[in-house]
Design a protein around this nucleic acid. Structure first.
Length: 566
RNA sequence: GCGCCCGUAGCUCAGUUGGAUAGAGCGCCGGGCUUCGAACCCGUAGGUCGCAGGUUCAAUUCCUGCCGGGCGCACCA
């Protein structure tokens, strides 16, 4: 509304010949840092200064003169020093925000930035060769939040888990489990060199031994090893699903790498590339000409020994995603795979898509801290903290909140002791507490026979206190926050926003009363307190409901619950 | 050597895509519950935004070069 007014002013000025430029710069309307600078500030005048060849202050003056409906929209319009345009919006406009939140409810914040374009977010996708560890947990939280964020801004979003159930790693899994199996049977074993050493391998072998029982006798060693591989795979995949389920993560689909090989999709894709002249043979291997699309060198897709590389199935997989008609592919990867991005984007281009069709969200390592010391992890030796352990220890909500507190590209220090603490120090409880506090308000109100009126029936014009307006301003910024977070694929901004909103709520709650004192209770004489009329109570209840709604919506984006009481 | 990411308060990190006096939590110090939840609030102290140039009316933000840390640079996945 304010932006259109501003645009109207610019167009008006141009028609009158007061301004020359016909391409306006992006209208950034930011909430200024200091309240005395108004509700919204614009820097258009300054950015127009060079192209107009006039002093920013003069341009600002022209804009102000041309502002349409200035009296109705703005309480105050100021031009400050270099050329800032500080706008103070009429309080009545802010009241509309509360009505909007009420009518949209859980949909408040949704926009149509994505215009229904289809997105596939692929995340976690851990090899089914062991339990998920903390790093996967962060990837899971980030992937889910990015998916929800994109949904909020109007994309049609699907989520998928890619199962690497083919190739060397699976063979190694089979060999490792088989070795443990023989060990359990008292047979001599030679443990595979790069085998998996974790205790879960032995555990899987034990389960398989029980499962197979006597039937194992009739199997040739090679068949038995194959059975070990197949059963261990099922076992571990089931565990992964269970862990993700416990973490509140669900995928729309699970895609198997092996299925690509079985269906000959890999072969087909390589044929396609060959016919496009993007594949060549050298030194007995087949190479994908990824350097033609900006990759630093070409990559092998079929080895000398005739086996396909991981890249080959990855090409087929992403080809499949494109064929399914997605406008945007999001892959959430561990940061150590960043070198892989150019070659996958080359795949996009090989199929005549812009490389931006694939966006990779990188997730950095998690450093676990306990009692101030780092918990050392090594996947090779099998000593690592699993995602399951973290969830069991701190709970799914706290785990997600901590995973989403930082930019995913930054290293994350995860303090287990802090996440576990149900105390003031834990930022997740700070946000949830704000929500629960408002719920508690409803309980008390109900006990006194009061209810929160619909926004339309309350006189919201009594909400004039800076603390009240500050809260509303913050609420009004929520839809745009979702947009910037989504277009940057940065869910941590939502986490920050929620902490800020919760802080405003707590301050307000501490300073102002909402309900009148219960019957029989005298208001304190020491503090005269502000006048609390029934009107004000009603308006503040509406405000509180708005705050609660936005906290709930924001937590939902992060996949975190909003408890009524704690 | 080449490439990507990071460098902001004692610690852990934000900083709304280039704006005004750089913010928050933790920690330190000092205050606040007889009334809607003190899992909270208020206040004090704490900064050469790694360094040096450049672009700009304006740089923590963009560009270049250094320094420091992490990660990649397979016919592994």
């Amino acid at each position: 509304m304010v932006a259109t007014a501003l645009l109207g002013a610019l167009d008006g000025a141009r028609k009158k010949g007061q301004l020359k430029t016909d391409a306006w710069p992006a209208l950034t309307l930011d909430a200024p840092k200091r309240p005395e600078w108004g509700d919204l500030a614009s820097t258009v005048a300054m950015s127009l200064a060079s192209s107009e060849q006039r002093a920013p202050h003069d341009i600002a003056q022209i804009i102000v003169e041309n502002l349409p409906r200035r009296e109705q929209l703005f309480e105050r319009v100021e031009i400050v020093r270099p050329g800032f345009l500080n706008l103070t919006v009429k309080a009545s406009l802010w009241q509309e925000v509360l009505k909007e939140i009420e009518s949209y409810g859980t949909a408040y914040g949704k926009t149509d930035l994505g215009r229904g374009r289809r997105v596939l977010v692929e995340y976690v996708s851990a090899n089914p060769t062991g339990p998920l560890h903390v790093g996967h947990g962060r990837g899971a939280a980030v992937g889910q939040a990015v998916a929800r964020l994109l949904e909020e801004v109007g994309y049609d979003v699907d989520s998928e888990y890619y199962i690497n159930d083919a190739g060397r790693q699976m063979k190694l899994l089979g060999a490792s489990v088989y070795a443990r199996y023989r060990e359990l049977s008292g047979q001599p074993v030679e443990f595979p060199e790069d085998g998996y050493h974790g205790a879960y391998i032995t555990a899987a072998a034990e389960r398989i031994k029980q499962q197979l029982g006597e039937t194992a006798r009739n199997l040739a060693p090679a068949d038995l090893e194959e059975r070990c591989r197949a059963l261990a795979y099922q076992d571990l995949l089931a565990q992964i699903r269970e862990d993700l389920n416990l973490f509140g993560i669900e995928f729309k689909s699970w895609f198997s790498e092996a299925s690509l090989l079985e269906s000959k999709a890999v072969e087909q894709v390589l044929d396609e590339l060959k016919s496009r002249g993007l594949l060549f043979e050298q030194e007995g291997a087949w190479w994908f000409r990824s350097s033609a699309f900006g990759d630093e060198k070409d990559r092998v897709v079929k080895k000398q020994d005739g086996e396909y590389t991981y890249l080959a199935s990855d090409i087929a997989y992403h080809r499949d995603k494109l064929r399914r008609g997605y406008d945007l592919l999001i892959d959430v990867w561990g940061a150590d795979h960043h070198g892989y991005i150019p070659r996958m984007q080359a795949v996009m281009q090989a199929y005549d898509h812009p490389k931006e069709r694939l966006h990779v969200v990188l997730v950095q390592l998690v450093k676990l801290l306990r009692a101030g010391a780092e918990v050392k992890m090594s996947k090779r030796t099998g000593s690592f903290v699993t995602m399951r352990e973290v969830i069991d220890e701190v709970g799914a909500d706290a785990a997600k909140f901590f995973f989403l507190m930082r930019d995913s590209r930054s290293h994350l220090d995860f303090d287990l002791d802090l996440a576990k603490q149900r105390s003031a120090d834990n930022p997740m409880y700070y946000v949830q507490y704000a929500h629960a506090r408002i719920s508690s308000l409803w309980r008390v109100a109900a006990a006194r026979g009061m209810t929160c009126p619909p926004a339309a029936e309350a006189d919201l014009s009594v909400l004039t206190d800076p603390d009240e307006l500050g809260l509303i301003r913050k609420l009004s910024a929520y839809p745009e926050l979702l947009q910037t977070s989504a277009s940057a694929f940065e869910p941590h901004r939502v986490t920050y926003y929620l902490q800020q909103l919760a802080a405003l709520l707590h301050t307000f709650y501490n300073k102002h009363r909402i309900l009148p004192p219960a019957v029989g209770q005298e208001p304190s004489e020491a503090e005269p307190a502000e006048e609390l009329t029934p009107k004000k109570t009603a308006a503040r209840l509406v405000l509180m409901r708005g705050v609660q709604q936005v906290i709930r919506n924001g937590l939902a984006v992060l996949g975190i619950s909003a408890p009524e009481q704690m």
